[in-house]
Design a protein around this nucleic acid. Structure first.
Lengths: 243, 243
DNA sequence: TTTATAATACTTGTATACAAGTATACACGT
DNA sequence: ACGTGTATACTTGTATACAAGTATTATAAA
């Protein structure tokens, strides 16, 4: 019953978060990590008990997760949907869609300052690799794309991204943790891709941008199967400790 | 204080909605209609009083509206953002982005059944015009695009659309009501555009599809200024009755 | 008059209480 | 044995109560 000791989401990222947000972040991680069988029904009362909070923040969290498509709110309770291979592809579809849109806008802008900012983030990512900090690496990876998308000042595109971001963050966190342990050499390729992306922004080269984004995805896509399986194994192990 | 008598959102569309949803739909309409000065601070207690409900559904509604970018939740309360000309453009940007994506998928699908469905909806729209039913027309207009977007079975694209839809519905409702009164001849042009869209889907003609979508927007865009002003005048009038 | 301080009123976040509806399980009748 | 009905337990939706923090306002002092 007591699941309070091993949180999947980095606690230090939640310093100013409300209880509702904390529940959402942690629950999201557990769902995406596959701790719940797809189809599992989560009741507000039970979750409130598990997290030792009241129903109010739990309700809030469930509505958030429903708006991200990883659960469905039904009369009988919240049904866990999780992330299938198909949905991961779809999320990358949307990111590609968004960033392609963003890039078109960037072409008619001064991108020097942006490229500088991105270079800084890229340096941070390299440091994270050096010190084998998967969570920090994930954070900077998300930040990288966040900066790009914010740069055009389009509130509704930003809205979509903000809706997508938590799920993507969870997904990246989980897969990076595995990579840092088992596929360390992947990381240099990821770094390379981000460098290409910066180059594309500097030179405003559409094709290069698309190429780097696609490769970034193909990279994920090719490996996601294995990564996922091992991650889920891991999660199942954690789960069994609790039951 | 009592604003209970003149709702902007069609009540019959709310038959199965929860209190929270009702508040969200109505509040959304009032915000988009411009009943609140941009920057107005809405407090949960005051809204609960105005709608004669408790804070719970109001909170729920406010979170929904915040996720649609028409209010911002701050420590001091919910700040009304409303829809500026810029944001309306942005919403159409996103719809164009989505539907372009959808169309690319449609090209490799059998679109006969879809075209049939859309033709039916278009007939409904014509009937709505004939009987001067602005709300029904708006409903079918939204449904038209809803059907197209659903047709490719892409859950995350659908997610974006579902997030965007309520705001777009409100916007369309308000502008159609004005058009039906003051710019009746616009409607035949809108119908024409939708016919073009169906043709584009039947023949899988990218350019025609983009053209019809763009014209649809340009149509809105050109007139939106005037429509909006008169709509807002109207709203202000309503508001003054209350104060 | 202006500034500082204290009190008050109002804000959200969280917890709890209550109501209505639904699924389930069990018992009873056929 | 099987179907039906009823009771019970569990679900969400809504209302209310409570706590902590903040902005504002009023009052007093300089």
């Amino acid at each position: 019953m007591n699941e309070s000791n091993d949180f999947l989401y980095p606690q230090k990222w939640l310093s100013k978060a409300s209880t509702g947000d904390r529940v959402a972040y942690e629950l999201r991680m557990r769902i995406i990590a596959g701790l719940f069988e797809s189809g599992t029904i989560l009741s507000e009362n039970k979750l409130a008990g598990d997290f030792a909070v009241s129903r109010s923040p739990v309700r809030e969290a469930l509505r958030t997760l429903a708006s991200e498509n990883i659960i469905r709110l039904e009369r009988t309770g919240a049904v866990v949907a999780g992330l299938t291979e198909k949905e991961i592809e779809e999320i990358y579809d949307v990111r590609l869609m968004i960033e392609t849109f963003v890039f078109e806008r960037l072409i008619s802008m001064d991108t020097n300052e942006l490229a500088m900012e991105l270079s800084k983030v890229l340096e941070m990512m390299k440091v994270a690799v050096k010190y084998q900090d998967a969570d920090e690496f994930s954070y900077q990876d998300i930040l990288f794309h966040d900066i790009i998308i914010r740069s055009i000042g389009h509130s509704y595109v930003l809205l979509i991204w903000n809706n997508l971001k938590p799920v993507m963050e969870s997904f990246i966190l989980l897969s990076m943790r595995v990579r840092f342990k088992e596929n360390y050499e992947d990381l240099t390729r990821i770094l390379k891709n981000h460098e290409l992306y910066i180059d594309a922004i500097k030179t405003k080269d559409r094709d290069l941008m698309i190429k780097s984004l696609h490769e970034n995805f193909d990279d994920v896509q090719g490996k996601v199967d294995d990564l996922w399986r091992s991650q889920q194994m891991l999660s199942k192990g954690v789960k069994q400790q609790d039951d």
